[in-house]
Design a protein around this nucleic acid. Structure first.
Lengths: 243, 243
DNA sequence: GAAGCTGATATTGTCGGACAATCAGCAATT
DNA sequence: AATTGCTGATTGTCCGACAATATCAGCTTC
């Protein structure tokens, strides 16, 4: 008789509603692009108040499962976009006191392998996007914010070229965390821009020729270069990243 | 005068409130473990209705920034836990039609390097946890659900031993996605359990001795083994993972 | 027939108030 | 000292309301 009872957990209604909706979406009963029923309709169907439904909707919205296209009233079911998910991952990492060194180490581990996979599996569309990102960087060399954005784009295109959604999603938060400081680095290190241009050229060349080894090694160099850039710029790698 | 106006976006109040709260938390004005003011207090401070505050709170809750400790009424500020964040990442991946092959490929890329980092940086606590996970697996060999859970734990401990939060968070969703099917595999493949035990022993040995090379290669073998297990069990690797 | 305008309708965002359930802390009781 | 009962604070949920505006059908115009 010494057996303790399991703690009985009663979930609030808004959580149940959210769970029910999520279940429907992941089971593909709602397809991406479909419009959700109106709040009042949902409230009626679930037999709860509209306020309760609204609280549930906030949850789905935060999870990236619902979006409203620019200034529109209707809510659309959608597949969570990489940048949205990565956003909350980034925030989590910041709150876990992640440092530049942590991020850099992870990138030096992952990126070469991602580049290798991209070289093996890229298709023509990937190549076009890659070249476009590359050209955009050169074109906006002067505008720091913009060219940093194109560096991020370049990495994103490479990950996408691997045709493995896991790699895309794993990489995105790293880029997000690095982006702000990357601007500072580029501004302080004279040759940074030209070195990036050179690395991108080698990389896209290797990927175009499906040369996995070259892609890997050039990416490894590229990442090492970033670290040197940070050191030259006098950015402490052990410092915790802020938002 | 040709400059087009930027689309003016008017954010709803619940989003502004959420943003304000998130800003406070990431800026460490609220520390982990602090409890949030009551909903009515927040409503007064922000000058909005309590319903609006509640919608904002749902967002923070979903992001893992707020938790309620078991059946307690008070909301606690907290650092997003890995499993919570990984949950939404997993869901996102599922909705992006991720296959077992995608997950396996990512693990075969990441895990050996993670094991290598763990071997280099593990401390005594990590070792103890590793051994504990290892023993738990052996102890519950019969209970499939439980021993799968301990496989996940083993991987988690290795990632933690790298002392790089990025690696911990990058790995978690992969394990989560694999966990259910891993049970099916283990049940169908006779020697699966013993092979896992052997691999875990080699791995923790390598990590104990800080032998990075061994850790890497044994992990690589371990991961390859998983794939063979899936194939033997007749699980189609190209199939999309469901929740 | 296509394109543009118009007004009715539906939907969202926000508010105020209300009430039951229950959790925390304190007083009373044994 | 430990247990029980009480009280106030807090959450979960509901109802009803209203302004702003997105949507859509119908009408007008070319």
């Amino acid at each position: 008789m010494n057996q303790p009872f399991e703690p009985i957990r009663l979930e609030p209604a808004y959580r149940k509603v959210a769970a029910a909706l999520i279940e429907r979406i992941t089971a593909r009963s709602f397809n991406s692009g479909d419009r959700l029923p109106s709040e009042t309709a949902l409230a009626q169907q679930f037999g709860v108040n509209r306020s309760t439904v609204r609280e549930a909707l906030r949850e789905l919205q935060t999870a990236g499962l619902l979006t409203r296209s620019r200034g529109s009233k209707l809510m659309m079911v959608t597949r969570p976009q990489a940048d949205h998910v990565a956003n909350s991952v980034s925030r989590a990492l910041v709150l876990h006191d992640v440092t530049f060194l942590h991020v850099w180490e992870s990138m030096s581990m992952f990126e070469p392998l991602i580049a290798e996979a991209a070289a093996k599996r890229r298709n023509d569309t990937d190549l076009a996007l890659l070249q476009q990102a590359q050209e955009s960087f050169v074109l906006h060399k002067e505008d720091t914010a913009r060219c940093v954005h194109h560096v991020a784009e370049f990495f994103g295109v490479i990950a996408a070229a691997s045709h493995n959604p896991v790699l895309v999603l794993a990489q995105e938060p790293l880029i997000q965390l690095l982006e702000p400081s990357l601007g500072a680095m580029i501004d302080r290190v004279a040759q940074a821009r030209s070195r990036i241009v050179a690395a991108q050229r080698r990389l896209s060349e290797a990927i175009r020729e499906r040369n996995a080894d070259d892609a890997r090694t050039w990416m490894a160099k590229h990442i090492r270069d970033f670290r040197r850039g940070y050191e030259v710029a006098g950015i402490d790698l052990e410092v915790k990243i802020k938002v």
